[in-house]
Design a protein around this nucleic acid. Structure first.
Lengths: 208, 208, 208, 208
DNA sequence: TATGAATGAGGCTTCATTCAT
DNA sequence: CATGAATGAAGCCTCATTCAT
């Protein structure tokens, strides 16, 4: 029978529905401003059902954050991993990644955009928090390596690679947040062009 | 009598104490994760006293946000208001303002750093929310004017001034958040040097 | 077919497994502190299965209590039913019964040890509760008859048989509980010797 | 002003009201079968008020149990502390204490009557549970000392003092429970006479 | 018959706010 | 004005029970 399979599919679709609803709500209002009841209603399941799949509100939140951080890291790391590629090309890909993927799935980017160590820390165990920090640190290191490569390739000025990596991440997350706020305020959507402009400025500034 | 005066002074110091405590707590943990009891204790007043001076938790929050936004706007507007000044000088002042004033009073900058339209909106009346939006929009326009001036002065490339203004604000708030998280994670304090580097990159990128 | 038989056997073993698991858990943690999920897991069946065989949690509990009460009554009644036997012999059997059978199946004795009218009453219908009361009353009457016999046989002093019967039951259940707590506190197992001593004291006290 | 004092009195009376309601309910139905809402209603306060005075349901329970155990120990220890007193007199006081004090404040005796190590343990921290065990152990030791004294005084047979102490406690708590159940079942109140009879039997059994 | 996902009532607890003093 | 005890709505979570397969 395909019964078991169908069951499995239904179960997974329910989990997906919960995750999607939760992600949207958390992204829109922040962890503390979303109630489990709200999530349940949005996902069209009962409150109890949430707890079948997620041990707690924190667990649900974590299950949304973690794979996104892992995935982004993977994607970005792969994207910029070709050591023979000119570093400016790599950075361009980095920016394009956000310009392209953000509109497709804005919630997937929320963890970066709204990550706030002091708010998140009390939610998770020390271990988990360390894990999240490590994940985010890796991302900075990835871009740091690109900057370093650019300097070695003679394309970039002699800058502090770690600082510039921080700046690039700050800039990207800052712009995503900014444009999100702007969109919410109904004043148009300029994400792509803003990111383009930002990248051009930075690259021009970085190049020798 | 000096009694009335003393009373007045005591009252104002009480209000200041409340505001200071509340600002620190909101900044540290976010609006929803702070209780009125916590604020009262930190300010060394009773819970009831909070409600003498502030109609509600939202009101208290607003009373913290609003003057900061107004003040920042004033300071920044004044700082860059000399139309004869080279635009790159003005931007340098803009960056320096954050590098200098943030360490002195980090909380004062929280409203920008953590402003999140979707989270804040349900707290306030439409009117108030519009007011906040206007305040923030003015700041963007101020920097936009500087960029425009730079172009007219022949110092800057022909960029989209509105986009670059957004970028500068995104960059500054992004870096502030970034360094705040980093500091919280006990990995050192690089705010000033990071902001310096960021400004140099951007200015180099902007200049013809 | 032997199929039907096998089915029947499997079914009965399933029921036994449920009862056994439930008895152990109820005995260990008390009715309210045991969940149906826990019982199902311990019995290695699904939650739904519990409801095939027992209409409700209360029903399951009743199905454990009732036969034990009936059975104890039967055993004890038979044990002391020989009217020609010296009453002190009969009481000795009564005590020995607990000293011998408790260690073999402690859970079977829980209904007595922890019976608490006020807690049990809201669980059951009036009718059922009355039934349980009657069962327990019969036990008291059985021992009461032994005391009476002892007086008539000229072995026992002229005491109030009902009161002494209550005392004997109180003593036995009291000691069982006491030693259970002590065992749980890991301070050794003195059930048998304690019961022996108790019986000797009481018999010495009863005898003329 | 007496205002502060009256306030204090009102506050304490409220706490007393809560404790009294809680004690009655816990005694009647057991810890797990009582809800905080029930207690609040019985005490005629709001649910929130309970948490002003007691950090949690467990804490409230503990606040009822602990002083009773301490107090009983004190009373009983004092009662039997005169080493020159004949041991049978001391035991008589011990029994009388329960016969007299139980009807006056039955709830005060609940902790003994219904103490169940396995149910109570998960409620409390290890430390607290150890503390409770120690308190109860002290009581056994107190009576143990009386038995020993009786033997030394040549009044009692040469029995195992620890075992007999356990038996006396088991007997008393057993009888209290028994009569409580009987009372609840509306079949009369024989506590005093039952305890009297029990004591006479035991003393007769103990004496040489 | 057996399963286990789903339900929703109800339990414990927090907290913004009120109000008598 | 200042206090802090009191309130009760609302949040997180558990669990007995049902039901489609």
């Amino acid at each position: 029978m395909g019964v078991t399979e169908r069951r499995l599919r239904e179960k997974e679709s329910r989990i997906e529905s919960i995750k999607k609803s939760a992600a949207r709500l958390f992204a829109r209002k922040g962890f503390s401003n979303v109630s489990m009841a709200e999530i349940a209603e949005a996902a069209e399941v009962s409150k109890g059902t949430l707890y079948i799949y997620f041990k707690s509100k924190e667990e649900l939140y974590f299950s949304l954050i973690e794979p996104v951080l892992v995935n982004h890291h993977k994607l970005i790391a792969r994207m910029v991993s070709d050591d023979s590629e000119p570093a400016d090309e790599s950075l361009r890909k980095f920016f394009d990644y956000f310009a392209d993927s953000y509109p497709l799935d804005p919630q997937a980017h929320q963890p970066y955009m709204y990550y706030r160590a002091e708010e998140v820390q009390p939610l998770f165990s020390e271990e988990r928090h360390d894990y999240l920090k490590t994940l985010m640190a890796k991302n900075v290191e990835t871009i740091e390596a690109v900057i370093l490569r650019g300097i070695e390739q003679g394309i970039f000025k002699s800058v502090n690679p770690r600082a510039v990596s921080s700046i690039l991440w700050s800039l990207v997350t800052g712009v995503l947040r900014w444009e999100e706020n702007r969109k919410f305020a109904r004043s148009g959507d300029f994400l792509e062009s803003t990111l383009q402009t930002a990248m051009n400025l930075i690259l021009d500034g970085l190049k020798m």
